[in-house]
Amino acid sequence: MIFQANAFQELLAVLDYWDRLLSGFILTMWMYIWALLFGFILGLFLAILRVYGGFAFSKISSGYIEIIRGTPLLAQLFFIFFLPYTLNISPNIMVLETSFYLFNKEITLKLLDYPIFVGIFALILNSGAYQAEYIRGAIVSVGTGQLEAAQSIGMSRLSSIRHIVLPQALRRVIPAWSNEAAYLPKYTVLVYFIGGVEELFSQADFVQHKTFFPLTTYIVVALMFLITITLISKFLEFIHTRTSIPGL
């Protein structure tokens, strides 16, 4: 155990597999970043539909959001994974692989294949729904007065939303949105259950079987998350301060 005299040796033994942990970490972050970015675009779209889309589009958007938020991410992952097979379509996804040398070790990374695609896609659909709610809150908080003022000088509704409401809503959303940015790396872990995706937890599983030090292995993994998420939060805090409107 880590608190015994040989704790340091255990740590060294686990860290001996640093190349495994690193490639797993990179794959997890790779899926996380795509999910966060495209989830943001989807969320923005859903939020605008929900606030400004009129009755029908608003209902469609909120219906989607409720379904996603009301069902487990794991179920969504499995649903998307099995959907093509159920429809008798064999999923045909380009495979993307890369490898590089670091400190005389070759690190091979599979960045895209069917399970990874399913993981990223499901995370986008899932995160988009949560992000939509954060963005919607920010849009609503800007209020209708400025939108009306913009329209009163002849700006179209779309132009008013783009130039007046969104610049403010996107500033306001950062503190709430950083929740999603901090949650999502941990949800990305669920992709592990699809199987065949060599992200951080599948690599950790490999390492703990090799070393027989599960506790140390998972403490190292946990620390990797802790450091990453702290950095993400600090970065977003910095962005929030930098983009704040003078006087507000």
Binding site: G145, Q146, A149, S152, I153, G154, S156, Q168, L248
Partner: peptide
Amino acid sequence: NLNVLRTRIGMVFQHFNLFAH
């Protein structure tokens, strides 16, 4: 065309409604 029309009718609001950003 309401957007063109509104360029010809100015409006000043009770709560100013300035663009805060």
